[in-house]
Amino acid sequence: MENKSLWKKITGSREALLLAILVVMGIFITILNPTFFSPVNIGQIFRNNALTMIMALGMLCVMLTAGIDISITSTLAFAGMTIGMLTKYNIVNSTLALFLIAMVMGCFCGAMNGLIIAKGKVAPIICTMGFMYIWRGMAYVVGNSQFASGEDVREFAEFGKDGTIGPYIILIVCYALFFWMLKWTKFGRKIYAVGSNAEAARISGINVDNTLISVYTIMGTLAGLAGALSVSIYASAQPNMQYGREMDVIAACVIGGVSMSGGRGSVAGTFLGALIISIIAKALPLVNVPSIAQNTVKGVIILVVVIFNVITQRMVDRQNLERREM
């Protein structure tokens, strides 16, 4: 019986399962290459995946309300391009101001999503698809066939260049903030409520529309922040930056146990999901898989995880039925 309850705990809690996978992976990798988990390597894993990790927090909130946002990398590009141009032509040079501008722009983009989804009753995927085109187009318009190279954003890139702690601080602050928000504040509870049962939330006095608008606004703001961070870390701003990477963010959430039908998911799970993808990508060459195969592996992991979930759920249901006395 003791055994069974441990098994149940692991299959029952997504965070525990992910942690177990991570530990097994860690041991396996360390055996193959004892120096893999060097501080430098770990630092790089986080730095290279900071954008995904930050945006995954917003996506977590959006998916908790049973929504989705595929416009985020377009928002990122729009905000990133704008500040890239601003600093290229020396209109604004303060790092803080550039970050703020990017975040305000992201906030605006997100609010547009939220307003149309909440008030216009438009399916989130369609609405954000529309803005995915609009903001990406705007990124090109802002760029006006120009892009910002490393030389153009030299000063701004100081913040995020290899070896600085700026990106890590942002990452830690974001995760701490969201962990607190979702677990310990009323607003966090409202997000879960809306996603778990919107009708019940409405009846119990939660303003569903406002919650939705806030969630998409938060997502946009984080995408804006990621835009600034991207310019800073990669020392360039191009209109096509991070094109198609929104799916990585969604994938991190899905692996992290965030349900697409809403109401289920946690900051810890999201973090572990993102971390697992990042480590696998980095570690593939160790097991003689060329890094070119990392996408295939990622896709397989997504499918395996979600199908595993369905099968365990079916088993649990079956067991419950068998226990029913007749």
Binding site: R189, Y192, A193, G195, N197, A200, I203, G263
Partner: peptide, 14 residues
Amino acid sequence: TTYPTLSVTENIFM
């Protein structure tokens, strides 16, 4: 009109 994905405590105090 419960929140099926949440715990009893979370439901009671929502």
